[in-house]
Design a protein around this nucleic acid. Structure first.
Lengths: 194, 194
DNA sequence: CGCAAATCTTGACACCGTCAAGTTTTCTGT
DNA sequence: ACAGAAAACTTGACGGTGTCAAGATTTGCG
């Protein structure tokens, strides 16, 4: 039995949980190796045995973040009718909910240190999220210019929209209404069912 | 004459220059108050008299960044024919050149600490850049859904495109070609000249 | 010319990530 | 079952960071 100081049990996941809590409460700048360790009830050097420094912890948190991201998109998609237009709207709604309700996490997973990470878990989680959007785009006729164009058009648009919303740039004047996503998304043609 | 240690002359701008150089050379994480001070040949506490801490310096650097941003968009726009389609392509090209050639600066101006900054210079520089895109969108017929919709569609798309490119997500497979912006941008109808 | 304000320096503090070395627990092989 | 290796965690130290307080120097103004 692990009664005393050594051998926590599942410290790795406990540290990720602590890090996620810190991120949610105080944003990226308040997420610190030492703070995550302290919150997990462990010494400041303990995380080094489970992550490759701070960056390693951030990668693990980001991988977890992508899972939340995927879950939200799937959840919103499942809650709508099966036609292409509604399914796509579900995906974008999940995308935007994640950006709004997990802002710090959203900013983290698309931040500088996540590029070319090499972290296998992070890459897998990232690919999974991207595939969800991709398979939903497959409900539409492929763009004449190529098979991958629909994905990129939708994805670019909704991602840019999320960022612009963070900067409150989605209205003409401070008192006007926010332009809804529906009006911004490209209009794709649903695939013919024969 | 300022021969000796006190009174640099124009330390504020010198610090911004140093900060920009550090940012270009080593990314955001290598931009430090103390390093910027050292590069400007000044003590570590000197910046406090010109900026409100590190965040204040970042705001000033971001304001400078938005000016470079605006210059690039205007430059690319001026180098093209006067028709709406080409002018817009110039803008987006300037946008994407800035994202590629000043990557760290691009990431900085759209990063967390820049939201609701309250810094007057930063807000002004930001508005200026946004107006350049806006006035170019005015060459097209306004979207039936509202006067501001074109701007947001173009802007969301090109911004998302820039981010996706940073993560190398603009191709279906590692060996396939990058999907060009032209195919991704919404197709607007040029305004009728009577 | 004198003095207040602005500018910069020096020094200190707490916090940070990381490394080295030591201690405790678990695992493994026989 | 038990010794020794490996893994997990602690303690302590180091240099670097942002920030504050206090002092020194320069500028500018009345």
């Amino acid at each position: 039995m692990a009664e005393n100081s050594h051998h926590h049990g599942d410290l790795r996941n406990a540290l990720i949980d602590s890090a996620l809590a810190l991120l949610t409460e105080g944003g990226r700048e308040s997420l610190t190796l030492r703070r995550a360790a302290a919150r997990a009830g462990v010494s400041h050097a303990a995380p080094a045995h489970h992550f490759d420094g701070l960056e390693g912890l951030l990668h693990a948190v980001a991988a977890r973040g992508f899972q939340v991201f995927s879950d939200l998109m799937r959840q919103e998609r499942a809650a709508r009718p099966a036609d292409a237009q509604n399914q796509l709207l579900g995906i974008t709604n999940g995308y935007l909910r994640f950006a709004a309700e997990h802002e710090a996490l959203f900013n983290l997973i698309f931040s500088e240190p996540m590029k070319n990470s090499g972290d296998a878990d992070l890459i897998a989680a990232s690919n999974e999220a991207f595939q969800i959007l991709s398979e939903t785009c497959a409900l539409f006729e492929p763009d004449p210019a190529g098979p991958f164009v629909n994905e990129i058009r939708v994805w670019s648009t909704v991602h840019g929209y999320a960022i612009l919303r963070q900067f409150d740039r989605l209205r003409a004047t401070p008192d006007s209404a926010v332009v809804p996503v529906d009006l911004v998304l490209p209009r794709l043609v649903p695939r013919q069912r024969d």
